[in-house]
Design a protein around this nucleic acid. Structure first.
Length: 153
DNA sequence: GCCAACGTTGGC
DNA sequence: GCCAACGTTGGC
């Protein structure tokens, strides 16, 4: 099993929104970055644990935990001309973008602030605190996962 | 809203 | 295949 961090803007979709979905499950659509896509397509597996990270908001940081319940399948929004995520260069025969389904596990009592994460000695290798913190799907190793989870609860 | 850092595009 | 221009992300 592997660990991940998925970014979301809570104004658009938050940990509370995930918890409020039917079966507390939702598809993670709209990933339009090749590196993130490759993670989703090739490495994100059923049962993997996922930190839900809130970005571009008041309380930036890790807000909760989710689990992958369905592995990569075509992201339908890429075929919808009305969608913000429409990609005219993609086709159903040869889909360019994929998504996975995640289900809610828990919301942390407080958001684990990015500021605090940056002070944690265990977390020097997470993409969040290194250069290029722009990836919306990033791996988290087991040691980092444990440290972040312990700091969140 | 600023701006640095990064990804993507497209002309050559 | 290079690289400048442009667009986007995301913390502050």
């Amino acid at each position: 099993m592997q660990y991940w961090l998925f970014k979301t803007e809570p104004d658009a979709f938050s940990i509370d929104d995930l918890a409020a979905r039917p079966n507390q499950t939702e598809h993670w659509d709209g990933i339009r970055n090749y590196q993130a896509r490759n993670f989703l397509r090739d490495e994100v597996k059923q049962g993997d644990k996922v930190f839900i990270y809130h970005s571009s908001c008041k309380e930036v940081g890790i807000a909760g935990l989710a689990e992958v319940v369905k592995e990569a399948y075509p992201d339908h929004t890429q075929f919808d001309p009305e969608s913000h995520y429409y990609d005219p260069k993609s086709s159903p025969e040869n889909p360019r973008w994929v998504m996975v389904d995640v289900t809610f596990i828990e919301k942390f009592p407080d958001v684990l602030a990015l500021k605090k994460i940056k002070t944690m000695p265990e977390i020097s290798e997470v993409g969040l605190v290194k250069k290029g913190h722009r990836l919306s799907i990033m791996p988290v190793n087991e040691q980092e996962f444990s440290a972040l989870l312990a700091a969140s609860r």
